[in-house]
C-alpha cells in the first residue's frame, strides 16, 4: 500500500526585507523617516518530500534557513514563492483542521505559562485542541510515564530546570497527538542524560503514533540517534537529501586512519600519506581520499613502524563541517 507523502515541498523560497541602518546619530535620525531595505534570500527554492512516519534530520549551520523553512511549513511565515503541502494542507492558510494535527517545538522558547504549574497549561491546551477528556487522560498518563513527569506537573514552570521544562514543553506539544511534529533544537542547553532521555522519548513516540518528524539540532548525537535520513541546508539551498550513512560517501569521500606508532614523528612527515587531523605524541589520525585507502594503508604498514592501525569513516560532525567549508570556499 502506498500512502501519499505527508510533506511535499516544491521550490519553496523566502526573501526577507531587512531594515538597513548605518551607524551614527545622523543616519539614525534619517532612518526614522526613510528606511533603507536590503533583500535577504533566506531560503532559495528548496524541494523535498517526506513520507508518513519518517524522522528526518534537518542540518545546517546557524542562518542556513532551517527555522525559516520550518516556520513556513507550520504556517508562521508566508513564502515569497513556491509550494508546500503538509497532510494535504497549504500551511500558511493556517486552517484549524491543519493546525490541530501539527506541533512545533522550539527549544529556545516556551509556550508554557511561567507562573502556573505545567498541568494548568496542559488543561488550556486540552480546551484549545478540544481533546476529549478520556483521550486527554490516556495521553497524559502515557507522557507522564515516558517522560517521568509525575513530580513536575504541580510545580510552577518558573521553578523547573531547563531540562525539566523541556520535558513539560514536549508533553504540552504532544497532548493532541499531532501527525506532524517539528522539533527545532529540542535539546538545546539540556544536560547529556536528559538529552538521551528526550531522544529515546521521541523515538518511542514516533514508533507508537507514526507521526512524521522533522528535527533540527546542533547536537549530531540527536540526529544520528533518531534520523535515518537527513536534509542538509546551507545558505538557503539544499545540499544533500538522503541516507545519513551515505552522507559521508557522497559529499565527503574520505577515510581516516588512526595510527599508533612506536616512536613519535613530526606532523610534516605525514604529508605524503594524507592530511593530519590530529597528532598527539605517537598517536596520529590521518585523512585521505576514499579510493586511496588500500594503497595508503599498505604504504603506512611497510614504511612506518606501526603498533596499531584502525581505518574508519570520519565523524559525522566533521563531514558536515567539511561540507560547509567546501561550500564557503
Amino acid at each position: 500500500m502506498s500512502e501519499s507523502p505527508h510533506i511535499v515541498v516544491r521550490d519553496l523560497r523566502k526573501v526577507y526585507k531587512v531594515h538597513e541602518r548605518e551607524a551614527g546619530a545622523a543616519a539614525s535620525l534619517k532612518s526614522l523617516f526613510k528606511r533603507k531595505y536590503k533583500e535577504v534570500e533566506a531560503v532559495k527554492g528548496i524541494s523535498f518530500t517526506i513520507q508518513p512516519g519518517e524522522i528526518v534530520g534537518f542540518l545546517g549551520p546557524n542562518g542556513a534557513g532551517k527555522t525559516t523553512t520550518l516556520k513556513m511549513l507550520s504556517g508562521l511565515l508566508y513564502p515569497t514563492s513556491g509550494e508546500a503541502k503538509v497532510l494535504g494542507f497549504t500551511p500558511w492558510k493556517r486552517e484549524p483542521a491543519y493546525l490541530r494535527q501539527l506541533s512545533y517545538v522550539l527549544g529556545n522558547r516556551s509556550q508554557l505559562a511561567w507562573d502556573i504549574p505545567a498541568m494548568d497549561s496542559f488543561i488550556v491546551n486540552q480546551a484549545i485542541y478540544e481533546i476529549p477528556e478520556r483521550q486527554f487522560r490516556e495521553t497524559l498518563d502515557e507522557l507522564v510515564n515516558l517522560l517521568d513527569l509525575e513530580k513536575l506537573l504541580k510545580k510552577p514552570v518558573r521553578g523547573l530546570s531547563l531540562g525539566e521544562r523541556m520535558k513539560c514543553e514536549l508533553a504540552a506539544s504532544l497532548l493532541h497527538r499531532p501527525n506532524v511534529l517539528f522539533l527545532d533544537e529540542p535539546t538545546l542547553g539540556v544536560d547529556v542524560t536528559m538529552q538521551t532521555r528526550i531522544r529515546q522519548f521521541i523515538a518511542e513516540h514516533n514508533q507508537r503514533y507514526g507521526a512524521t518528524v522533522i528535527l533540527t539540532s546542533h547536537y549530531m548525537a540527536d540526529v544520528t540517534a533518531l534520523c535515518k535520513r537527513v536534509l542538509v541546508i546551507h545558505h538557503g539551498s539544499l545540499l544533500y537529501d538522503g541516507d545519513l550513512n551515505q552522507l559521508s560517501e557522497r559529499i565527503a569521500p574520505f577515510k581516516q586512519v588512526r595510527l599508533d606508532l612506536e616512536t613519535p614523528m613530526e606532523a610534516s612527515e605525514f604529508a605524503k600519506y594524507g592530511d593530519v587531523v590530529q597528532i598527539e605524541g605517537a598517536k596520529v589520525t590521518l585523512r585521505f581520499p576514499r579510493e586511496q585507502t588500500s594503497q595508503v594503508v599498505s604504504r603506512l604498514l611497510t614504511e612506518l613502524s606501526v603498533v596499531d592501525l584502525t581505518v574508519e569513516d570520519p565523524a559525522i560532525e566533521e563531514v558536515i563541517d567539511l561540507v560547509f567549508q567546501k561550500v564557503q570556499a
Binding site: G75, A97, Y98, L99, Y104, L106, Q111, I128
Partner: peptide, 9 residues
C-alpha cells in the same frame, strides 16, 4: 512567543 498563538487552531 506570539508564534505559539499562531500555531493554535
Amino acid at each position: 512567543t506570539l508564534d505559539f498563538l499562531l500555531l493554535k487552531p
